[in-house]
Computed example of a mutant assay.
Amino acid sequence: MAYTATTPAYPRLLTKLDALRATFARAFDALIEARSRRNEIERLQKMSDTQLARLGLTRDGIVQHVFRDHLGL
């Protein structure tokens, strides 16, 4: 007696394509977040020391401030 597969072969391909799509989505999200942080650093660097002081920042602390959620500060 012969058996035939009734499941098409492409579900594995679809699974791989979904994984690839998810990888690209994560990479794109990381790119957007990095650009946003870079823009925030540039914005703060353009401020005067007096303006930074009003925000409770020093020029040396700008990067730490922008990345505080990643640095655990």
Rank of each mutant, 00 (worst) to 15 (best):
Y3V: 08
P8T: 03
V66N: 02
G72T: 08
L55C: 05
V66E: 05
M1N: 03
L73R: 12
D29R: 11
T58F: 00
R59Q: 05
S36T: 14
R54D: 15
G56E: 11
Q45N: 09
Y3S: 11
R12G: 01
M1L: 10
R68G: 06
L17S: 02
A5N: 14
F67Y: 15
R37I: 01
V66M: 02
R68A: 13
A19P: 00
G56W: 01
L71K: 05
G72L: 11
L44A: 03
Y3F: 15
H65S: 09
M1K: 09
S48N: 09
A19L: 12
L55G: 07
D29A: 13
E33Y: 06
A9S: 13
D60V: 10
G61H: 04
A9T: 10
G72K: 11
D69Y: 03
A30G: 07
A5V: 08
L52Y: 09
G72A: 07
F67W: 09
E33A: 10
L13N: 07
N39W: 00
M1V: 13
A34T: 15
Y3L: 13
S36Y: 06
G72M: 05
Y3C: 09
S36K: 14
I41N: 01
R37Y: 00
R35G: 13
S36V: 04
L71Y: 05
V63Y: 02
D69G: 02
G61W: 03
T7E: 11
Q64D: 15
L31A: 09
A22K: 14
D49Q: 09
R26D: 15
G56F: 08
